[in-house]
């Protein structure tokens, strides 16, 4: 019953609309709800990456500590974004800090559980990886634009 309603909640997420109800049920077995307040870290660079997050609400900054310039915000993510694809690939370690800027509500998908399911059911694996890849594609487009530095003053 618990899993069932979680699957329905997952189905509401724009990222997952392309997954079948069966796959959502399957995925919901690894999922739980997480709330985290502004100012807290969702994870920090170097820690073990144990969860994949789907952001439902809130804003999270992905930061890199870059001395001597202190901390730089590389990108902020929010509602509709997927966070934490490090859980999918060894060494399952976070490569960046995730600091919450505005109170966040997330689905957390347990990494070990997810990896097991991906191996157990390649059809599920294919569809979930498509979701991840589509999101990575969007994020890459955003980052590409961001690094174009379009507002730079041309010197004359």
């Amino acid at each position: 019953m618990e899993t069932h309603s979680l699957a329905r909640a997952l189905a509401q997420n724009t990222l997952l609309t392309k997954l079948s109800m069966d796959h959502l049920e399957f995925l919901s077995g690894c999922a739980k709800n997480v709330r985290i307040s502004a100012g807290e870290y969702l994870f920090r660079e170097g820690e073990d990456a144990n969860e994949l997050f789907l952001i439902r609400r809130g804003v999270i900054a992905l930061e890199v500590y870059a001395p001597p310039r202190s901390t730089m915000s590389a990108e902020t993510v929010g509602s509709g974004d997927l966070l934490g694809w490090s859980v999918l690939f060894p060494p399952h370690t976070w490569s960046i800090d995730a600091r919450v800027l505005e109170d966040a509500l997330l689905f957390s998908i347990d990494g070990a559980c997810l990896r097991k399911k991906l191996e157990a059911d390649h059809d599920f694996g294919y569809h979930l990886m498509r979701v991840v890849l589509e999101h990575v594609h969007r994020r890459l487009e955003r980052l590409r634009l961001q690094q174009l530095d379009v507002y730079r003053t041309e010197s004359i």
Binding site: V59, A61, L62, E63, R69, S70, T71, M72, S73, A74, E75, T76, G78, L101, R142, Q146
Partner: peptide, 10 residues
């Protein structure tokens, strides 16, 4: 998002 920025980056 330079040092001290706590708004959105992107």
């Amino acid at each position: 998002g330079l040092a001290g920025w706590s708004g959105r980056t992107g």
